[in-house]
Nucleic acid binder design. Structure first.
Ligand SMILES: [Mn+2]
Ligand SMILES: [Mn+2]
Ligand SMILES: [Zn+2]
Ligand SMILES: [Zn+2]
Lengths: 167, 167
DNA sequence: TGCTAAATAGTAATTATTCCTAAACAGGAA
DNA sequence: TTCCTGTTTAGGAATAATTACTATTTAGCA
């Protein structure tokens, strides 16, 4: 979970990217975060350290990091992009109330294989499952109770294991 | 696959929505489409029929249809919202080259159950799998060949069946 | 046939993101 | 170490999608 400046520098070098204090700070903030922050949120996080930094730099940096494959963009709606430096295969649980995104790490979900009925010249390189619903706090505020037999999803855990490699 | 004006009117009534020619045309265009169009694309589709129609009306209409649960918003990136009138549980195959979205209908994917390790007061109401990769035409243009043992996904079909209900 | 709340169309405003450019700087070469 | 050069930064302006505002029209109902 901890990453040193040297580690970051090496990652950047491995991608042919220059290491600047701003860039390292932005990447570090994203690595440290668990909330899949927006560009603005990352800016707010690192701005105190670099009072001169431009929001534009955050966008530029996120752009190069994404192009280099060091981070992913996560989209839960069209309003703003959110980012994720966690490259290990995982999925997301999205609260429709507060827009929170939490990681879902369940190895069984990483073993899905090609679905039926897709064009056979399509090459799938990754996939991701987005689970949607309401978190406890949002459910309480809207007065909804858990209904395990509601449309949607069975409350028990995944029973089948699928074979193959994941994103 | 065919839907009549009367059918649409009844759906609208069932949601307490007024039936206007513009609204019916927009919804009909979305029902008829398979491309998960943007607001602009729907506007281009129906504008010839209604030369006076405003793009704003398309946005307003998509908003009320979404709020009423008659359509879904699909997001493959943050640049623009795309829409889907297909409410039956299904998933998506996204080409990273041309941004195309095609439906994935594989009943096995509709039987995933709650993943492990999520907060137990979170109520999942739906989920969706987004498969990403390159379509045949995009792969040809970039000179990439199919590599079935590449990182990503096994080329065979889903082997396990999971229990539960889907989105 | 009127009433009224909702819908439409047109315009303006907002917001996230990208574009442009001059100055600063990281990293490699001399 | 110093210099060079392409990259990065910061700041401002521009863009594009979406939303807000508002006067007019209209669908659905009494
Ligand atoms: Mn994540
Ligand atoms: Mn679809
Ligand atoms: Zn919530
Ligand atoms: Zn394509």
């Amino acid at each position: 979970m901890e990453i040193s400046f040297t580690d970051i520098k090496q990652k950047f070098q491995g991608c042919g990217l220059k290491t600047t204090p701003q860039r390292a700070a932005i990447y570090d903030a994203l690595l440290r975060s668990t909330t899949h922050p927006t560009a603005e949120e990352l800016y707010a996080e690192v701005a105190p350290q670099f009072p001169m930094m431009s929001l534009n730099t955050v966008y530029y940096t996120l752009g190069v990091l994404r192009t280099s494959g060091l981070i992913h963009e996560v989209n839960i709606d069209h309003t703003r992009a959110r980012f994720d430096a966690n490259l290990s295969p995982h999925h997301h649980l999205i609260c429709l109330g507060c827009q929170s995104i939490v990681d879902v790490i369940d190895p069984r979900l990483n073993r899905l294989t090609s679905p039926a009925g897709i064009p056979n010249d399509f090459e799938i390189t990754s996939y991701q499952v987005a689970f949607r619903g309401l978190c406890g706090s949002c459910r309480r505020h809207t007065g909804r109770s858990i209904n395990h037999s509601s449309p949607g999803l069975h409350p028990t855990t995944v029973k089948g294991g699928l074979h193959g490699k994941s994103s």
